[in-house]
């Protein structure tokens, strides 16, 4: 039995100041697949642009900016704004406010919107592609946070390398996922939406979940919580993933159980 050969045609979209990669796993990379990929990339781009127009705090006429300026209309008229608002409130509560949707005293859902946008675009435009005989896998990666799926009954797994925060050309480990989401937060590159505790030695947090919003929220909360507090949250909320601590190194956890705890003093 020979191992099936897969091809990974992809497109990169530049939006919300991050590169998004639409990547398929196909058994044959022909013109038909390329046409489908182009078409889907266009639709995903439009969806991401609409989300950016509606939720960017940097755009004067976005719903977020209007809401920040005291206009309650978005909260009453827009289903999408309501959905985002409700999720930020739940996210804050379940993470004991280590995830925070307030920036400089104003409501700012930026930390949640990208994951929600990926989730929406993925389910609406990418998921149906799995009906196509040649397409075995679909993925949408937005700056290192992604949603993935494979055709049912297929033996293909997406391989996801976790970047080493201290050397971005190296990977620490690889996860193989068929259907789910993975998000990583660090403290070195884009810290403006992450509030860090002073004594935290945490460098990076990766969370695997069925939902990207969930994974993203917990990864962000982990950086803000710090290693010791995050260990409590991992147990409390049955989290799965890994974190990197400056002193303790890599710490794996699955379903709320920290695996290599004997090596650490947690």
């Amino acid at each position: 039995m020979t191992e099936a050969k897969y091809y990974f045609p992809n497109r990169v979209i530049q939006m919300m100041n991050v590169p998004f990669t639409v990547k398929l796993a196909v058994t044959e990379d022909d013109e038909v697949v390329q046409t489908i990929l182009n078409d889907i990339t266009e639709k995903v781009t439009d969806k991401l642009r609409q989300m950016d127009d509606d939720f960017s705090p940097f755009k004067n006429d976005s719903m977020v900016t209007r809401f920040q300026n005291g206009d309650e209309a978005p909260l009453i008229d827009s289903d999408e704004f309501q959905a985002v608002y409700a999720q930020t409130v739940i996210a804050e509560q379940m993470t004991h406010h280590y995830f925070n949707a307030t920036f400089a005293g104003k409501y700012d859902p930026t930390g949640l919107v990208k994951g929600w946008a990926i989730e929406q675009a993925f389910e609406k435009y990418l998921r149906p592609l799995l009906m196509d005989a040649k397409i075995v896998g679909i993925s949408l990666n937005g700056g290192g946070d992604m949603k993935l799926a494979v055709k049912q009954g297929c033996d293909f797994n997406w391989g996801i390398g976790i970047e080493n925060p201290n050397d971005t050309q190296q990977i620490l480990t690889t996860y193989y996922i068929q259907d789910g989401a993975i998000a990583t937060s660090g403290n070195s590159k884009r810290g403006e939406h992450i509030l860090r505790s002073n004594n935290s030695e945490i460098e990076q947090v990766t969370i695997i979940s069925s939902s990207l919003v969930d994974a993203d929220v917990w990864a962000t909360a982990g950086i803000s919580a710090g290693t010791e507090e995050m260990a409590t949250l991992i147990t409390e909320s049955n989290l799965t993933g890994m974190m990197v601590d400056k002193k303790l190194g890599s710490i794996d956890f699955r379903n709320g159980v920290i695996k290599n705890a004997q090596k650490t003093s947690l």
Binding site: Q14, N17, S139, G144, G159, G161, K189, D252, N255
Partner: peptide, 28 residues
């Protein structure tokens, strides 16, 4: 219930088994 199945292993980025990289959000 819906937790993705995974295994982790040390592997080089050049491996054909990796298609995605998860890291702290990259800028352009």
């Amino acid at each position: 219930q819906a937790l993705p199945t995974y295994k982790s292993e040390a592997i080089t980025a050049q491996s054909s088994k990796i298609q995605q990289i998860s890291g702290a959000t990259e800028t352009y």
